[in-house]
Amino acid sequence: MKSAPYLLSLPALLLFAAIVIVPLGMTVALSFHDWGQYKGIEPVFILKNWREVFTDSYYAEMFGRTFRIALLVTLFSAVFGAPEAYILNRMKSPWRGIFLLVILGPLLISVVARTLGWALLFGGNAGLVNKALTGLGLIDAPLPFMFTETGMVVAMVHVLMPYMVLSVWAALQRLDPQVENAAIALGAGPLTVMRRIVLPQAMPGILSGAVIVFALAASAFATPAIIGGRRLKVASTLAYDEFLNTLNWPLGAVVAVLLLVALVIIMVGANRLVERRYGQVFR
């Protein structure tokens, strides 16, 4: 039967529609409703919420901070994660398996637990980070990490770096170590080998990992909520506050929809860039 594949995939499609498409459609519809402190939500079609988000500089600041932090997290994840993946790729058994377990181990722990650990490390004068820096004589006064973008970036880099490492490591699996040895035998220096051989092979993995890390960082909630608190909001915590604190669900829906649309546009554009420029590497 020609229709057999469609019938077999129908339950999965219905489940996907029920748990993803329908809620998203309801959120978009909710964003056009009216809300008042005493009248609650009114199912009328208005553009007041969208107009408020686009005209108020407060929301522009929230989205700007969200994508700025996500960009910094992606950059630092690539800077530290790509060399780590290269070293992992050059390791031999059993060290490769041991260090791969070390990299994947944090993914087995709740994001909330890991972020609370960073909150303890950052915690003001009593934080272990400031105590260590002060004890080493590197700083005279404690550095502010809690409720700052710096603390949020550090914590999210730790949380999301495994995704970058795995993406780059998967791309480097196609790199034959003998190619590097041949280049060195022909007189190429270490920097030339990295620039002309390793980096082109790793770049598809770096870009793919950057897409994953950026999307997860921009939509993260637990880490910004704990490290940033109510003083330093991002789009996800702003939507949470609108839904559960002020109870302005339509305005929170606008923030959530705009964040989703922005991430989809960025991810689709980045994926097309990866496929267009580095598609031949995967063939």
Rank of each mutant, 00 (worst) to 15 (best):
D34N: 15
V213H: 05
A239Y: 02
V261C: 03
L166P: 06
G187T: 05
S3F: 07
D56F: 00
P162T: 04
A4D: 04
L10W: 10
L263D: 13
L101W: 14
G64L: 14
L120Q: 14
S110K: 08
L116F: 10
P144H: 05
L143H: 00
A220M: 10
I184W: 07
F122W: 01
L7W: 15
R196K: 13
L166H: 08
R51P: 03
V193R: 14
L216G: 04
V53L: 12
G36S: 09
D34L: 15
V111W: 12
G252D: 09
N130C: 02
L108C: 08
D140R: 14
I41E: 03
L247I: 13
G97R: 14
K39G: 04
I184A: 12
V211M: 10
V268Q: 05
V154K: 04
V193A: 12
Q201G: 11
G135S: 07
I19C: 12
A222Y: 04
L191I: 13
V28W: 01
F145I: 08
A210L: 09
L166S: 07
G205A: 05
I212S: 10
G127H: 01
L120I: 10
R231A: 05
M267T: 15
L247S: 07
R283C: 01
G189M: 04
T150Y: 09
L136C: 13
